[in-house]
Design a protein around this nucleic acid. Structure first.
Length: 286
DNA sequence: CCCAAGTCCTGGTTGC
DNA sequence: TGCAACCAGGACTTGG
């Protein structure tokens, strides 16, 4: 599910519900997904619970695919959704009403406000690639090793040119590398490269100035379109209220191998690049 | 057996 | 030669 536009869609849902709310309790169902501690972070479910209890959410932020809750007491709680993670808000008064499936629940964070209006943030994840981590400060430690946010970061096409320079890795592998630009995954990588008419196998350092300008434009434009359509629900994705997005309806390349290229009519080709299934047009992506 | 929205680690190569 | 940066590929996990 979760690349930058899906994570941003979830963040917006949480932003409507969480700021000002107090964490009443934390239930860690699956300790595997609790990231082990750097220095003074939580190492166990008990520590996570005692650190979080009573904290109030000040803000809900995002960097790349990482979503984080800024809490009182100089704490930050980060959530990574992995491949199949879902974060869903459930009204405790009406359990099972709009709520998603009850299976594969890994964490439950229960909240309240002054009015005593209780609800829960439920983290579900079939494949258990998701992670929950607590840290100090306003920004999670791991953001330091990430590149600028691919959509909202202040990078320019000149910055992109510098990042690409000398790299021999395929451009698609570069786009997937969160330490360069943060937020692009397999779906949006295929869509961005299709829109920019660049072959996923091109050596990153071989792109000319025109191609780099086109690429940086399409990185922002495809991701912004994903956010506008509230994410891509090709399989599991739903937002914090359990609603699917619509980006899957405008996919041009991803998953469409064997079909005709919507631009030139050639047959879209399937291959493996950077260890990931890749679809591109062999005629008009150069 | 094949495939799937993502990292993370390891070991080998490249190049200053 | 030394060592860091870079890069490819497997591991992890569950289900369809």
């Amino acid at each position: 599910m979760p690349e930058l536009p899906e994570v941003e869609t979830v963040r917006r849902g949480l932003l409507e519900a969480l700021p000002g709310r107090r964490i009443e309790s934390v239930e860690t169902v699956d300790t595997l997904m609790l990231r082990t501690a750097p220095a003074d972070a939580a190492a166990s479910a008990d520590e996570l619970s005692s650190l979080l209890q009573g904290r109030v959410v000040e803000d809900v932020r995002r960097h790349g695919k990482l979503i984080f809750l800024v809490l009182t007491g100089d704490l930050v709680l980060s959530l990574h959704l992995g491949m199949t993670g879902q974060v869903i808000l459930q009204d405790e008064e009406r359990p099972g009403d709009e709520a998603g499936p009850r299976s594969h629940i890994r964490f439950v964070f229960r909240f309240s406000d002054e009015a005593g209006d209780d609800f829960a943030l439920v983290f579900r994840d079939v494949r258990r690639f998701g992670r929950v981590e607590i840290g100090r400060g306003k920004i999670p430690e791991r953001v330091r090793s990430m590149g600028p946010d691919a959509l909202e970061g202040a990078w320019t096409s000149d910055d992109l040119a510098r990042m690409l320079s000398g790299r021999r890795t395929p451009i698609k592998a570069f786009l997937l590398d969160q330490s360069r630009l943060a937020g692009i995954g397999n779906i949006y990588a295929d869509e961005i490269l299709f829109a920019a008419q660049i072959s996923p196998r091109r050596e990153a350092g071989s792109l000319n100035e025109d191609e780099i300008v086109r690429l940086s434009g399409e990185i922002r434009s495809r991701l912004a379109e994903g956010v506008r359509l509230k994410g891509c629900s090709i399989s599991d994705f739903v937002d914090a209220r359990g609603r699917p997005g619509a980006f899957q309806e405008v996919l041009q390349a991803y998953g469409r191998y064997g079909e005709k290229c919507p631009r030139c009519g050639a047959v879209l080709e399937r291959s493996r690049v950077a260890g990931r299934t890749t679809t591109h047009c062999p005629m008009c992506q150069i």
